[in-house]
Amino acid sequence: MTPVLAQATEGGAAELWTFIIVGAVALGSAFGLILMRNAVHAALMLVLNFLAIAVLYAVLQAQFLAVIQLIVYAGAIVVLFLFVLMLLGVSREDSLTARVPGQKTMASVLGVLLFVSLAAATAGPFLGDASVCGSEEALTGTGDGVPCLGLAAVNAAEGNLRGLGFLLFTDYVWAFEVTAVLLVIAAIGAIVLGRRQEDPSELVEPGSTVLPARRGSGSAATEPGAGPTDADEGAATETSEATPSEGEERT
């Protein structure tokens, strides 16, 4: 572990500043996500949010999850989102006008209520001095608040990745195997859902009999008195012109 990160995970002032800056980035990008009109901008805000959360994981002594967050979320999932956005057309701007009158006001009020209740329910007992992970009060059990034990001892014993792997393949091996099945099912489901179901009569394959028939009629109409070599050249140019137009028809 680098000295900066070590300092940050031991409850020093570095953790406070990391939390303030990265937390502000996370909150700002989350607001940007729900307020950006353009869906691509929203996706970029989502990347920023994922990066901020990855930094928070590293501070919270979950180094493996920080890397996984970068690879899976910021790498794979957001790229998938951007793929679909590009596929479906990015030019359309999402109108933020609500169809239900007062929808945004009601949603904001509900969101504030949700935040207050969630924060009170989860964070309430963990705001005292003893809840500072790795501090004197937490280790001795003095001070108010539920003590935060910290993962420093667990991670120092066998390492974060080794400990996680040990848990995954002993206590949680059943869930791990079920997850493998779930991933296979999801992949198959995505393939089945993404398959384009076309009318078989509209399918034009490049080597099928449709192209030579068109080529013969076109060359006969445009060049009636030409020799066989000229007709072949015209046919060649016509097929090269006909292919993109057919592509347009198919799309």
Binding site: G11, G12, A13, E15, L16, F19, G23, A26, L27, A30, L56, L60, L114, F115, L118, A119, T122, A123, G124, P125, F126, L127, G128, D129, S131, V132, C133, S135, G145, C148
Partner: peptide, 13 residues
């Protein structure tokens, strides 16, 4: 320093 509850508040937000 940062009590653990701050992270929970951020997550709730």
């Amino acid at each position: 320093s940062v009590p653990a509850g701050y992270y929970l508040i951020l997550a709730a937000a």
